[in-house]
């Protein structure tokens, strides 16, 4: 119940009927770190994020965000879903999507006003999409779509950001832009948690890591737990390409 943890998840199990996707996972994330959740396909990474956010019911376990239940501190949590989770042919513009980040603060029925629109424009500028603000979202590239999602989360003005595969299918420039924004967030004391695929970049991008494969394999500072041994535990034999990199 320590308030110093940004997220304190205990004994989380998530199951579809009787198939466990996440098995009894404990995870403590200190405030102000940038943490990667890594693990092979089907390890339950996205499920874990959704479980933390209450989007999927927990079969068992308990999540505290800044020592409180998620419902109480919802406004301190920003979320970037997987880019592929939505239909980008939806009739709306970049600005409109980014504005959605302010809806949580507005609550039911109240509409965004000038203040929110300014906030959205600032976020759009931050991700380098100003000239696209009125663009229809179906005309964006994958990288641009991801920037829009990031901008939307920025308008949430949260203390902790949960991101599902923020680098999947984006170009190198976008990846660099996103990582620099995330580092900026971290430097201003925010906590960032991202599901990540590319093991090579883990030590460069993140300072904290959780290895997941249905169960939690290891978790802690990258320097301590991002080891060959732990990776082998998480990925089984499929980790040879990292042999000379991880130590």
């Amino acid at each position: 119940m320590d308030k110093n943890w940004a997220i304190d998840a205990e004994d989380i199990t998530i199951a579809y009927h009787d198939k466990p996707v996440i098995w009894d996972v404990d995870m403590q994330v200190p405030k102000g770190v940038m943490m990667a959740i890594i693990g092979p396909n089907g390890a339950g990474k996205s499920t874990l994020i959704k479980g933390l956010l209450g989007l999927i019911p927990l079969t068992a376990g308990d999540v505290k965000v800044f020592g409180e239940s998620y419902k109480k501190v919802r406004k301190k949590v920003g979320y970037v879903p997987q880019r592929t989770a939505v239909d980008w042919d939806f009739p709306t513009t970049v600005l409109d999507v980014v504005l959605m980040g302010t809806y949580g603060r507005l609550g039911w029925v109240k509409r965004p006003r000038k203040e929110e629109i300014i906030l959205a424009h600032e976020a759009i500028e931050k991700v380098g999409m100003s000239e696209f603000a009125n663009r229809q979202i179906s005309q964006l590239s994958g990288g641009q779509q991801q920037r829009v999602f990031l901008a939307r989360a920025l308008t949430q003005n949260a203390e902790i950001y949960l991101m599902d595969e923020p680098f999947q299918g984006v170009d190198a420039t976008t990846e660099r832009a996103i990582i620099s924004i995330l580092k900026e967030l971290k430097n201003s004391g925010k906590t960032v948690i991202a599901v990540h695929h590319d093991l090579q970049t883990v030590p460069d991008y993140f300072d904290w890591v959780t290895l997941l494969n249905v169960r939690r394999i290891a978790g802690g500072p990258v320097k301590e737990v991002f080891t060959k041994e732990n990776l082998r535990k998480a990925y089984g034999g499929r980790i040879s390409f990292l042999e000379d990199k991880s130590e």
Binding site: T13, A15, D18, P20, W23, D24, T59
Partner: peptide, 20 residues
């Protein structure tokens, strides 16, 4: 069946937790 599964699964969960 789902109700039974729920208890059976809970028992599994319990023993896994204890083992951990």
């Amino acid at each position: 069946r789902r109700k039974n599964q729920k208890i059976e699964f809970a028992i599994k969960m319990l023993v896994v937790h204890l083992l951990h």
